[in-house]
């Protein structure tokens, strides 16, 4: 499974060469629980194993995941676990636990399902670019198949019951990953966060360890899960993402009109560093790759293919590097190998 994943690009990462998407990917996630067992946090290990058994059996009857591989968490090495997190297939919280848990991943990585995260079931569909409705359609169908063989915890008042009341109701979290360099450059991210926050939409940085979002990547997602139906939630987020994209595009046009030399200079320097550096930390590399994306998107730089940059953003992460190299690497070794990988690919 991992062998194949290392050498294949997940489809959600692949965009046609002609498009220059600000929205990199879209995701829909649903939370579901069994009606007759405590939530995972209060389950005994026996009960958790029972959940794994039931869910894997039910999943085998679905069209989408019947052939998918079931990965038990305890069979995964620390690097495998981190690899799945970097790949956006599981949450960091999921892999940090010791109790029985499992993940089921479709062959093309479009659909995955965590068993015994905070809820018994957390399932997701990931699509490239802004395709929230398509992702919802796919996941909705899958969920309807699953419910035929699983007694979901559901109340007519509160809807699907979840361990945390912030997920109750639809159990649905829709999110889009956006590349917003112009909004960051012009210090407008704060006002975007504030504006959408008022209507129950959250914006958070991605690929970040410290105080700001490295690589100008942001995740936009709904916070409200109860009182609105699924279509409304998905559609509302879609509309807001379109507005943010429009905002970003306007700022990009202004940037290229007003500061063409500065932009070209930034992009060229980023390329130079990436092409010739001997040592690159993941933070620095992510930042520089984001600058390259800006160059490609603003058509001031055509030395590199967008897909290569997108792929590098995933591949330069620590567990990906170690999987590719086939062994554990220290931080210093990773920085060397990362720089080498980028030099070769560019």
């Amino acid at each position: 499974m991992f062998e194949k994943m290392i050498h294949h690009r997940p489809p959600w990462l692949v965009t046609p060469p002609s498009t220059k998407p600000i929205a990199i990917s879209s995701r829909i996630r649903l939370a579901r629980n069994m009606s007759d067992l405590p939530f995972p946090g209060r389950c005994t290990n026996e009960q958790r194993s029972e959940v794994i058994l039931r869910v894997t059996k039910a999943v085998k009857k679905t069209a989408l995941l019947k052939k998918a591989e079931v990965l038990k968490l305890d069979s995964l090495s620390p690097i495998d676990r981190q690899f799945l997190v970097e790949r956006h297939l599981v949450s960091p919280e999921f892999v940090q636990q010791d109790a029985p848990a499992a993940v089921i991943i479709s062959n093309d990585e479009t659909c995955s399902l965590m068993i015994n995260e905070e809820d018994h079931i957390r399932m997701q569909v990931l699509r490239s670019e802004l395709n929230l409705e398509e992702a919802w359609e796919m996941l909705n169908k899958f969920d309807s198949e699953l419910e035929k063989s699983l007694p979901y915890a559901f109340s007519s008042k509160y809807g699907y019951l979840t361990a945390c009341p912030t997920n109750v109701g639809t159990g649905l979290r829709a999110s889009a990953m956006l590349h917003l360099p112009a909004l960051v450059h012009e210090h407008k991210i704060g006002s975007v966060m504030s504006a959408v926050g008022k209507i129950g939409i959250a914006v958070r940085g991605l690929y970040g360890e410290s105080s700001d979002s490295k690589g100008n990547m942001f995740q936009i997602s709904n916070q409200v899960t109860l009182g609105q139906n699924e279509e409304n939630i998905v559609n509302q987020l879609h509309q807001i993402v379109l507005r943010i994209i429009e905002h970003e595009n306007k700022l990009r046009e202004a940037l290229i009109a007003n500061k063409p030399h500065q932009i070209k200079n930034d992009v060229g320097r980023a390329y130079g560093t990436l092409k010739y550096a001997e040592i690159l930390t993941s933070e620095e590399a992510t930042e520089l790759l984001s600058s390259l994306l800006i160059g490609v998107d603003l058509q001031v730089f055509d030395e590199v293919d967008r897909t290569i940059v997108n792929e590098l953003l995933i591949d330069i992460q620590p567990a990906h590097l170690q999987k590719m190299k086939g062994k554990n690497l220290t931080a210093e070794q990773r920085d060397l190998y990362r720089a080498k990988l980028i030099r070769t690919r560019l």
């Binding site: 009606s35 909705n140 969920d143 309807s144 419910e147 035929k148 007694p151 979901y152 559901f154 109340s155 007519s156 008042k157 509160y158 809807g159 699907y160 009341p165 912030t166 109750v168 109701g169 639809t170 649905l172 129950g200 916070q223 409200v224 899960t225 109860l226 009182g227 609105q228 139906n229 699924e230």
Partner: peptide, 22 residues
């Protein structure tokens, strides 16, 4: 109280399981 504050409305209006409950 909590749900009133973190959610839009206290009543579910979305999908429900077809065979809910057994």
């Amino acid at each position: 109280d909590i749900i009133k504050n973190v959610q839009k409305s206290p009543n579910h209006t979305g999908k429900s399981p077809k065979i809910f409950p057994r």
